[in-house]
Nucleic acid binder design. Structure first.
Lengths: 163, 163
DNA sequence: TTGAATTAGTTGCATATGAAACTAAAATTA
DNA sequence: TAATTTTAGTTTCATATGCAACTAATTCAA
């Protein structure tokens, strides 16, 4: 309001979509994700959830499905289906957990390890290409800002949940 | 590489998912979008694409569907379906364009204007709540960084397209 | 113990999505 | 002006998603 220009059909307050943070984040993320998703699909036949599972298994070794959920912040349904396809493609193996038979242990197969090794540099290359739009100090800054925003966004989401 | 610690199953280079920019953007955006989407749905029965169409029509007045695509960066299919539902709900009116009969002109109905006026402050409130995680100077900074990243991301996407 | 509540993970269902094919109108070219 | 190409927008179809219900195993409590 205040000095805010009034819009063509709108006597009250304006929303300047192109400056609206949730919108800008969404556009940026979609631009980035779509590019990357296409590349993973074309080169490796992997979806983003599938690739994320590979990434956490590659980094943190054998994990249960729920640990993979935590690590990737993906829904358990999403993880369950991604894992099913990875097993089909023989990139991941599932062994029952002896101690708790509800669980199973997921790990990369040798083929999975090889694929993972191929993808990582490509993923890093894309990230570098993107991050090169910023100076090193800007990058550190972005890092801090994203951390703060994520913390706040999670708070808001959690709060909303209990209403 | 270099001093990079080697992971449990991975002799080569590592990808630290929780520091990987595309991943972080995706988590943040999903956290924000899901919260907002739930609110729009619960309060107004609108999906995110629907709300975005309302927002650009509220801000930029009567538009064709393809202008709405450009303004929202959404797919024409998404726009077409969102518009169809908005017309059903009598929030948007579609009039044929006299000059070019392939086109039609979309505008908010009076009811649509009222709904828009109700939503804008809520949307702004959420954004404020989120942005309050940052100081004013951090916000300006974020703004700049997002602009730079978006420009680069679009470049990469466009380049990829022609390959 | 044994019955109730929790947790791990999968499946069913209803909705969302986007690529590709399509219809209709307009612009371009021959 | 007729044939071709392009553009606006919709529909179709195949896939993705996520909630809710489910199964099976485990933990908790009486």
């Amino acid at each position: 309001m205040g000095t805010n220009r009034k819009g063509p059909q709108e006597p009250g307050s304006q929303l300047i979509l192109e400056q609206f943070l949730p919108y800008r984040l969404s556009i940026l993320t979609n631009t980035v994700s779509n590019t990357i998703a296409r590349e993973y699909r074309d080169l490796f036949g992997l979806s983003v959830p599938e690739w994320r599972i590979m990434a956490v298994l590659g980094r943190f070794g054998p994990l249960t499905a729920s640990a993979a959920c935590d690590r990737t912040a993906m829904d358990k349904v999403t993880v369950s289906r991604a894992v099913a396809r990875l097993i089909e493609q023989q990139l991941v193996r599932r062994d029952p957990d002896r101690d708790d038979r509800r669980r199973s242990i997921l790990k990369l197969t040798p083929k999975g390890v090889r694929t993972h090794q191929e993808i990582v540099p490509i993923a890093q290359g894309r990230e570098t290409e993107l991050a090169e739009a910023l100076t090193p100090s800007e990058r550190r800054n972005l890092d801090r800002l994203l951390t703060k925003l994520q913390r706040r966004a999670s708070e808001i989401a959690a709060q909303e949940e209990t209403m």
